Simulated scan of single mutants.
Amino acid sequence: MKQKDSLKFSNKIVPDRIWREAYVALSHYPELKDTPIEFKFKSEIDKSFMQAQPTLGSLLKKRKNRSYIIFISEEIDIEGEKFSVTTVPSEVLIGWLGHELGHIMDYRDRRNIELIWFGLKYMTSKNYIREAERAADTYAVNHGLGQQIIATKDFILNHTRLTDQYKERIKDLYLSPDEIMALIDEVHDELN
């Protein structure tokens, strides 16, 4: 992606096409204000629409000096159904970005060796994938993005052209809408 196709504000690099949604999602994570994050389109991400990870070079740095990248597939093919970042509703995109920022929150507190171990376990253990994805959803909900996370789940689970097999995978690995609503209620109760 050429620099002219992206906005750079502070220490964030965001493609023009998603800057509004990225700004909204980032506004819910004030702890990430000083964290360098690049949002970057990638032609294809295996089995996913987005993927957050530390940059390779930053794994050699102290935690506070790490930078991160969120890869975003411009188009995703889920079992023959194509979705484009430009056709996904804004609230859904904010929820997806908020979920990925939740992963970054999870990564921030891990030592470098723990991040490497995390990556290995994520690639080999379905239970660990479930734990990591639910943690990212929880971070997003706890940061005020519950409605957007629900919109994202609704978009996936109620999309008629997606197969039941794909929907079951999502139900298995991520928080359900009911679990998200319970978390929203907990956050609301804590604030009152």
Score class of each variant (00 low, 15 high):
E179R: 06
K121G: 02
K40P: 00
I170G: 00
I129C: 10
Y107N: 01
G146H: 05
T87M: 07
M181G: 06
P89I: 04
E75D: 08
N127G: 15
S176N: 05
S67T: 08
G57K: 12
Y166K: 04
K47N: 15
T152C: 12
P89H: 04
D106K: 08
D5C: 08
D5T: 07
D172R: 10
G146R: 00
E186V: 12
D154G: 08
D189I: 11
F118C: 00
T160L: 13
W96E: 03
P15N: 07
S58W: 07
S10H: 13
F41D: 00
K40T: 06
T87P: 02
W117D: 11
E131F: 11
R63G: 08
I184M: 15
S176K: 04
L145V: 09
A22M: 05
E21A: 09
I70Y: 01
A135P: 00
D178G: 09
I113C: 03
I13L: 10
N65W: 14
S43M: 09
P36M: 08
H188G: 08
D16R: 13
P30T: 05
W117Q: 11
G98R: 00
G102Q: 04
H188F: 12
A132S: 13
Y29W: 02
G119Y: 04
S6M: 11
E44V: 07
Q148E: 15
I184P: 00
R17G: 03
F39C: 03
I104H: 01
R161H: 11
K171F: 00
K47D: 13
T152M: 14
A182M: 10
L175V: 02
P54Y: 02
T35Q: 01
D34N: 15
E131Y: 12
L162N: 04
K2W: 12
Q3D: 15
D154F: 11
P177I: 01
V92G: 01
K64D: 12
A52F: 01
D154V: 05
Y139Q: 10
I149M: 06
Y122D: 01
K47R: 13
N192A: 12
E168H: 08
S84Y: 10
T163R: 07
I18C: 03
I70D: 00
N142R: 15
R110W: 06
Y166H: 10
G102K: 01
R17Y: 08
Q165S: 14
T86F: 10
K121P: 02
S43F: 10
A182D: 14
R130Y: 04
F41K: 02
K64V: 11
I37V: 08
D16M: 11
S125A: 06
Y174A: 06
E31T: 13
P15V: 03
R161Y: 10
H159S: 07
A52G: 08
I18R: 02
D16H: 14
F155Y: 15
I180Q: 00
W19T: 12
D46K: 15
M50H: 05
G119Q: 08
E38R: 11
I18G: 03
